[in-house]
């Protein structure tokens, strides 16, 4: 009699008929389903944007320097994540953990800048109600920010394990997720900040 409360990894998880480790394979499917969630939102935004020429004026009120700085921060944190993966591949858990914590720091800076940006905009009357452009702006950057936040929590947990040399394969997985969040921002930045 085994106790269900003591969780044991089943044989199924260790099989790999495709040659891709199960965790990574599942992650690709997660990202596939994320692409259509962000895709649906952004496709709707682009349609409205093309339909309402005056949105260009609204977009000129977003802070291109804050957005640009955040792009830089996310790109840099992505570099840390991938360097963490490299360290994990070499079996160096503590080094991987250090890089992952730097990645978390990047996420923290990103959200901090975002919070300053939002509060400045709201203070100047660019609230969610001002125009549909701003509704889309807050919805899209908010959804993305939520992904950043979730990523930071998981990064911190994975880093804690990695520092003790445990579950090093997860370093790569959370890294891939983080790069995806980065890639989404790469599109959000021109859509909401640059194009005007």
């Amino acid at each position: 009699m085994t106790h269900a409360s003591e969780f044991q990894v089943p044989l199924a998880t260790r099989r790999s008929a495709t040659g891709i480790p199960t965790g990574r394979l599942a992650l690709w499917w997660v990202l596939a389903s994320e692409i259509v969630i962000f895709g649906g939102l952004l496709a709707s935004y682009i349609m409205f944007r093309l339909h309402h020429p005056h949105w260009a004026d609204e977009a000129s009120h977003t802070n291109i320097w804050a957005g640009g700085f955040n792009t830089f921060v996310l790109l840099t944190s992505s570099l840390f994540a991938v360097l963490g993966h490299q360290a994990a591949e070499q079996g160096d858990g503590p080094k991987a953990a250090r890089f992952l914590r730097l990645t978390v720091l990047g996420g923290l800076v990103f959200l901090g800048v975002k919070a300053l940006e939002w509060s400045g905009e709201i203070a100047h009357g660019f609230t969610i109600y001002r125009d549909l452009f701003w509704t889309f702006y807050y919805a899209a950057t908010g959804l993305h920010g939520l992904h950043v936040l979730v990523g930071m929590v998981i990064l911190a947990l994975v880093a804690q394990d990695a520092a003790r040399g445990k579950n090093l394969h997860r370093v790569e997985l959370i890294g891939i997720y983080w790069h995806f969040v980065d890639a989404v921002w790469i599109f959000l930045f021109p859509l909401f900040y640059i194009a005007r």
Binding site: W29, A32, S33, E34, I35, V36, I37, F38, G39, G40, L41, A43, S44, I128, Y129, L132, T135, A139, L143
Partner: peptide
């Protein structure tokens, strides 16, 4: 998985309309 994404986004948008009165 491939079809529900836009509706998840759409549901978030509808929830915004319902709860915050956006348009």
């Amino acid at each position: 998985m491939a079809s529900v994404g836009p509706l998840v986004a759409g549901a978030i948008m509808l929830l915004f309309d319902q709860l915050f009165g956006t348009h």
